[in-house]
Nucleic acid binder design. Structure first.
Lengths: 201, 201
DNA sequence: CGGCGTTTTGAGAGAGCTCAACATCGGTGG
DNA sequence: CCACCGATGTTGAGCTCTCTCAAAACGCCG
């Protein structure tokens, strides 16, 4: 979800880069939001600490994803943001963003549209996680992400990344893909998966 | 997430009720969006049909949830909406909504804020689904949804509903809650769960 | 060549799912 | 008031599937 689509130039001009070491905090619960962040590289996890002192991870965001959208509309962060690896981020000042939305209705609408799309994407991923079977989960993914031809998907990262996105261990995914390929359901060639025939119901 | 918060009166006035029989389509992929819907009762599933003719369910929406947010900003629906049971919906004309946002900046911002909150909620639920252990999933839920005192949660619906929200079978949830209560970790009294002590790591 | 991360395959165990039976509760009507 | 009924709540037993731990082949880069 590249944000270059909807971020007005006036805001993009005010963006600043920020680097975090692994384990460093971008912000803490209770801090006042001053910026909105896009992750360029690395991972940042959003988490809360419960009464017992245990960390509850809410989300792990990767490259291309944004965090703290909702905080744009609230006065404090309601969770911590901690780098899970060395990470670089782009920070967009909250004030500049809100000002831009106030002046530029198109920008505001584009931002809203982006959020609406995110909502639908997240719902789709949520539905996927309801599927227990690794094979059906892969099928669901292929059905949702198939390209224009409706039969092939190009993977962005490694298979391990793919496994994480599917919420499976990489071993389970390897086995599942191998099994589907053996059964003639899919074909794999370096980062691309093609649906060969309908899975037997 | 009651939408009464952000829907301006001018739009609410234009809302119309609509009833669907089980299996009836609310809209089909490719249709032009004319309305934005809130589900009052029943279930509506969003799905696509892949080349092989198999239905891929993207999401199942229940009472209180809204569908087709993103379609407000696009010219065609990109999935089907089909009633999974007898359902009643409230329809808000797309044109009225957009017009209201254009006139009333507060309404537009409120809508955006609602979407932003939804994004965060969905991310939280997504993270929860990454947790395999039923017990840890319950703990995560309690940690996230604890009330002001940080130790108690009041369930809205039945335990079966709770199980569905957690993505567990109701049997697994019964057993887990019983086990946690037996171990002195929580206390249950009709629809309310209280955290008694920190779970042993 | 040597090291590191990804990909792949193996074996075993645990945890939740499935099927099944039963208890409980609230509403409905005779 | 009681019998009936459906839905929720509860417990039992077995099974399947993924996770976990382990190890080896493969590819890439210094």
């Amino acid at each position: 979800m590249p944000n270059h689509d909807w971020l007005p130039a006036s805001v993009r001009a005010k963006a600043s880069e920020r680097k975090l070491k692994s384990g460093a905090a971008l912000f803490r619960q209770g801090d006042r939001p001053v910026s909105f962040y896009e992750i360029v590289t690395g991972r940042v996890r959003l988490s809360r600490v419960d009464r017992a002192g245990r960390e509850v991870v809410l989300y792990v965001a990767g490259p291309g994803e944004t965090i703290a959208e909702a905080s744009l509309f609230s006065t404090v962060y309601h969770c911590d943001a901690i780098a899970g690896s060395a990470a670089t981020l782009r920070a967009f000042p909250k004030a500049a963003l809100l000002a831009a939305f106030d002046k530029d209705r198109k920008a505001a609408q584009a931002f809203t549209a982006t959020l609406a799309r995110q909502v639908m994407n997240l719902r789709t991923r949520l539905e996927q996680r309801n599927i227990r079977s690794a094979r059906d989960r892969v099928r669901h993914y292929l059905g949702v992400h198939a390209g224009a031809d409706g039969r092939s998907v190009t993977l962005r990262g490694t298979l391990k990344d793919f496994a994480a996105e599917l919420g499976l261990t990489h071993e389970a995914l390897y086995r599942t893909l191998a099994g589907m390929a053996r059964g003639g359901e899919i074909r794999r060639d370096r980062g691309k998966i093609t649906l060969l025939r309908a899975p037997k119901v």
